[in-house]
């Protein structure tokens, strides 16, 4: 077995546009590896988003769609209804999914749509320069919560916990990428979500806690620590919904 990093065939050989220390590159790679390992490259359609995930189709070596802001689960619904035997996933950040795209995300789950959402949560709008998102932590300083997110700005949005209450949501889990063990767990979760989809069990979502050193104003290693120490108390890891017959 080859040791060390190898680029999967499902990932094109081009440099990331992501900032140093950003976890998006890891999340992209995990998705690409799972698509390759499942032998699904000829039957996969990835639906990107608007935000730091906007260029997903520039990196994946399989078919891709760039939808409008927040609408990825609706676009994926259209694709999946036409190609029910294909692997169809969305890749969305917390600005895209948990704010403007809340409706599309919730109702795809309500319908039990057989799609997978890869939801990258870094507590703010990264691409537009670090504005507050519904997922911003209480007290967290962003460019639009300069005094820290307080009562007037509301409370952190726990998407996974909320979706787990829906009958149509088959598999909902939250993972992180702040150390190698977490990365391995995250990959297993993505694999499980894709398998749940291909078994036709319903909607699946993998929430990936992700570091944003640039907009947090932290060095890459400090940003990983921030995920572990500051995000986990609000966003605990674990599986919130697992379909019967699928190993927890």
């Amino acid at each position: 077995m080859a040791k060390g990093y190898q680029r999967p065939s499902t990932l094109l050989d081009r440099p990331w546009h992501f900032c140093p220390g950003c976890n998006h590159g890891i999340a992209h790679r995990l998705v690409a590896e799972v698509v390759e390992e499942m032998g699904m490259v000829e039957k996969t359609v990835g639906v990107g988003s608007v935000g730091c995930g906007v260029f997903a189709y520039e990196y994946f070596n399989f078919d891709g769609i760039g939808p409008s802001h927040g609408r990825a689960p609706a676009v994926a619904t259209g694709v999946k209804r036409v190609l029910p035997d294909h692997l169809v996933f969305t890749y969305q950040g917390d600005g895209d999914l948990a704010a403007i795209g809340t409706t599309e995300m919730v109702h795809s789950a309500v319908r039990g749509e057989n799609i997978t959402v890869i939801f990258v949560n870094n507590t703010l709008y990264g691409m537009t320069g670090g504005q507050m998102a519904p997922t911003t932590l209480t007290g967290q300083v962003t460019t639009t919560s300069p005094r820290g997110r307080g009562r007037e700005q509301g409370f952190p949005f726990r998407v996974s916990e909320m979706l787990a209450t829906l009958e149509g949501a088959a598999y909902v889990t939250r993972v992180a990428l702040f150390n190698p063990a977490q990365v391995v767990r995250a990959k297993k979760a993505i694999r499980k979500a894709f398998e749940v989809q291909m078994q036709g069990l319903g909607f699946s979502l993998v929430e990936v806690l992700s570091a944003c050193p640039t907009n947090w104003g932290l060095a890459p290693l400090e940003a990983l620590k921030f995920v572990e120490e500051k995000m986990l108390p609000t966003y605990p890891l674990g599986e919130f919904k697992v379909p019967e017959g699928v190993k927890a």
Binding site: A74, A76, H107
Partner: peptide, 21 residues
């Protein structure tokens, strides 16, 4: 598919058309 809004409906159209339908 009965969408949850016209916003979603037109984006489902976008997806289905992209997928060749």
């Amino acid at each position: 598919v009965q969408a949850e809004s016209e916003v979603s409906a037109i984006n489902m159209v976008f997806g289905a058309a992209s997928a060749g339908a």
